[in-house]
Design a protein around this nucleic acid. Structure first.
Length: 306
RNA sequence: GCCGAGGUAGCUCAGUGGUAGAGCGCGGCCCUGAAAAGGCCGGCGUGGGGGGUCCGAUUCCCUCCCUCGGCA
């Protein structure tokens, strides 16, 4: 029996993934599953450039705007839900089309993650306190003793990863470097096709700037004001645009500066996305000029499917 | 036109008689339970043009050009 297909459309922010994905999904009877750490959140449709209602009416979308901004969310949870969606969609004899820009989420689907119960948050809190008090290098020394293999891969200043490795060790007694070897990805069970959309850097940056301007026209300020009144999860609070506009709203700097920062931070983000995707050798890159119609791009992808 | 200050990296600027740095920007990379986060690395340069002094000039001298401020 041939393996069932799963499609990924990835690429940096503003590369035009959403529309292309809908066009392709229509053509192949697919349903879209978002692969985006920010679009899962409710109350931030403009901020996270969620696909418009128009698009969502044409093709069913999953894992978009399903979580309240105050709720913590993470890769592992995402993976669990995404896997469930895959089987639900396949049961309907449809093809899952993953679309998004979160490299880690893509990678964890493709290559798997080790199964592990949630670590008691108190352990992390205590580690965070120690990091603040004694610095990340202090914790790094501890990690070198507990799990030298993990330590070898982590930079002494990378507090986040040091803390994660330590908390896993404290919670399970096992080194994270060992647990991480117990992964299983989608490739085993499915025929996975991954397309990467890309534009010349200059063009990409222009589109990012235009997108930010458009977001502001669409009422981003109002959306952010509302968000600032509610509690935001560790993830949601970092959506680009929140802190930049917050600074403006608090009078720390002017509007122009806020917009400038938003554009710049989005450019940096896109650059990091590209680094992540370049590493994934299974991606078939589709190099665009920016002038193609989404329809044409979708057809191009479609031809590469069979 | 005169006087003064200055022309060094994409930008703002530092420094030195032995061909040059910093911050930001920009580029590259790492990443597996916060990932739009977090971390690491890289100077990317006809030192305004031309001439002179000197073993050697970005640094000293002359000249021209340009910018800014003041006086006309």
């Amino acid at each position: 029996m041939p393996k069932e297909k799963i499609i990924f459309i990835v690429g940096p922010t503003a590369s035009g993934k959403s529309v292309v994905a809908v066009q392709l999904a229509k053509r192949i009877k697919g349903e879209i599953i978002s692969c985006d750490s920010m679009q899962v959140y409710k109350m931030m449709p403009i901020l996270t450039s969620q696909p418009t209602l128009g698009l969502r009416k044409q093709v069913k979308h999953h894992l978009i705007a399903t979580v309240a901004p105050a709720i913590e969310y993470n890769v592992s949870q995402y993976r669990r839900e995404a896997l469930k969606k895959i089987s639900q969609i396949q049961k309907k004899k449809k093809i899952p089309v993953f679309v998004g820009g979160t490299g880690l989420y893509m990678s964890v689907l493709l290559h798997g993650i080790f199964e592990q119960q949630e670590v008691n948050p108190k352990i992390r809190e205590s580690l965070l306190k120690q990091a603040k008090k004694f610095g990340s290098v202090y914790l790094y020394r501890k990690l070198e003793k507990a799990d030298p293999q993990a330590a070898a891969k982590i930079h002494p200043h990378d507090a986040k990863r040091i803390i994660r490795a330590l908390e896993v060790f404290q919670a399970t007694g096992k080194p994270i470097s060992v647990l991480q070897k117990t992964r299983k990805g989608l490739n085993h069970d499915y025929e996975v096709k991954i397309f990467g959309l890309n534009l010349p850097r200059e063009k990409l940056y222009t589109r990012i700037e235009e997108r930010v301007d458009r977001m502001l026209e669409q009422g981003l300020e109002k959306e952010v004001k509302k968000l600032l009144k509610s509690k935001l999860s560790r993830t949601a609070q970092f959506a680009i645009g929140i802190k930049e506009l917050a600074g403006y709203l608090h009078g720390e700097y002017g509007w122009e500066e806020a917009v400038r920062m938003m554009k710049q931070n989005t450019r940096h983000y896109a650059k990091r996305q590209l680094t992540w995707f370049r590493k994934e050798k299974a991606i078939q890159w589709i190099n665009l000029t920016g002038k193609e119609k989404p329809q044409e791009v979708a057809v191009k992808l479609w031809k590469k499917l069979y």
